[in-house]
Design a protein around this nucleic acid. Structure first.
Length: 271
DNA sequence: AAAAGGACCTGGTGGC
DNA sequence: TGCCACCAGGTCCTTT
């Protein structure tokens, strides 16, 4: 479901409601995610106060005095804040009750998500330690992409969707950023020059920044923790628009599978 | 080392 | 209406 802007939107909707509140109950309804939810989560969290919520790539990091709860939503996960009396639905996996009144409920039909606990620095967790730079940080620039792409033979689209190269760019925003930069998604990463990479890095920053400002992209079911949908789908230039006219030049948007993922581009605007 | 493909899951949609 | 194939916002693991 969610890429960086959607996770950031969720983080921002959760933070004001939950920070500084104490967990009064924890219930694991169904531990079957990509990795099983720790069975001792209630013992770990009950009575602890949430100090902050951070984001790294598509991971949400819930900071407690003695460690971090790491949550990844996979393809179909979502987090809602509900009254604890709201009835469970199928695929509800976990309830965290804050201050006896707020229920943070994790729901995930496809069960590709993860809920992990670490008492160490989250950046040292095996799933996070090898992640690439955050695209909205200053260290992420075209020069960096150009350097790490040296002699790489994979498509540029697959390359920027690799979280070990740059964190948080998924299928929607990879397509959109390549359109904005005027780069064909099938080009090989090692054959793109420095000026193009500078354009691409700036396009990634721009598309993610605007998407966050719009509350993310709702294709079918994304909402923030209060149930609000995103608005960025109205700004999509190529994703999901195969057969429609390019809004820049009028030519027909093409669709092609690249690295097993649907890809969309304008054959005129993207060289 | 890097690339390609499979694997993990369920649900919605469109075709027949 | 029913059945089936295909598709989906992610990412890890195995094989080549």
């Amino acid at each position: 479901m969610p890429e960086l802007p959607e996770i950031e939107t969720i983080r921002r909707s959760l933070a004001p409601q939950l920070i500084q509140k104490t967990i009064t109950a924890v219930t694991v309804h169904d531990p079957r995610l990509r990795y099983p939810i720790p069975t001792d989560l209630a013992a770990i969290l009950t009575g602890k106060s949430l100090e902050n919520i951070h984001r790294r790539s598509k991971y949400l990091l819930f900071e407690f005095p003695h460690g971090h709860l790491i949550i990844h939503l996979g393809m179909s996960g979502n987090l809602r804040i509900l009254s604890p009396s709201v009835k469970l639905r199928q695929h509800d996996c976990l309830d965290l009750i804050f201050a006896q009144t707020l229920c943070l409920r994790y729901h995930d039909p496809r069960r590709f998500g993860s809920i992990l606990w670490t008492s160490d620095s989250p950046s040292k967790h095996p799933l996070l330690t090898d992640l690439g730079p955050e695209p909205l940080e200053n260290e992420f620039q075209g020069e960096y992409l150009y350097r790490v792409a040296h002699k790489r033979q994979k498509s540029i689209k697959t390359f920027i969707m690799d979280g070990h190269i740059v964190a948080g760019v998924g299928n929607i925003y990879a397509n959109e950023a390549l359109f904005l930069a005027g780069i064909r998604p099938t080009r090989l990463a090692g054959q793109i020059d420095l000026p193009e990479y500078q354009r691409l890095a700036n396009s990634i920053k721009q598309v993610l920044t605007v998407a966050i400002a719009q509350g993310g992209t709702t294709l079918r079911d994304f909402t923030d923790s209060t149930g609000k949908t995103g608005r960025f789908q109205q700004s999509l230039q190529v994703y999901g628009r195969a057969g429609e006219k390019c809004q820049q030049c009028g030519n027909v948007i093409q669709q092609q599978i690249i690295g097993q993922r649907s890809s969309y581009f304008c054959p005129v605007c993207q060289k």
